[in-house]
Amino acid sequence: MNIDSIKNGIVIDHITAGKGMDIYNLLKLDSLDCSVAIIKNVTSVKMGKKDIIKIDADIPINMDILGYIDPGVTVNIIRGGERVEKRSISLPDRLVNVIFCKNPRCITSTEQELPHIFKLTDPANRVYRCAYCESKASGRGI
């Protein structure tokens, strides 16, 4: 299958197979008016299968969302048809308004203008806890 190369834009590579659509939704790529390609189940030597997203515009990407959803991805910046930068992602120490606290006893449940802040408390097990009530993040929220 052929997908046109992009001139200036971003390629999100090494996405765990099946997570491409999640990332597309969470980064709100549907609101862009440029070309966006989601390529699913691409054969990969390293990963067996992977997803790839190509965005035909140089837009700011929320690395915290990427790091939280799939820390193994790489973000390639393309200018003039050439890759000029390759960024690896790591688990973010802090997430702001990426996931929401579901604890009904948390102050964020009644004061909805508060930013939802989560802190990485256990990197080995990718555990995030609410900065206010310390509840463990459950699911992806957003």
Binding site: R105, C106, I107, T108, S109, C130, Y132, C133
Partner: peptide, 10 residues
């Protein structure tokens, strides 16, 4: 003192 968890942090 507040009934909601995290209120004093706010």
């Amino acid at each position: 003192r507040h009934p909601k968890e995290g209120a004093p942090l706010v």
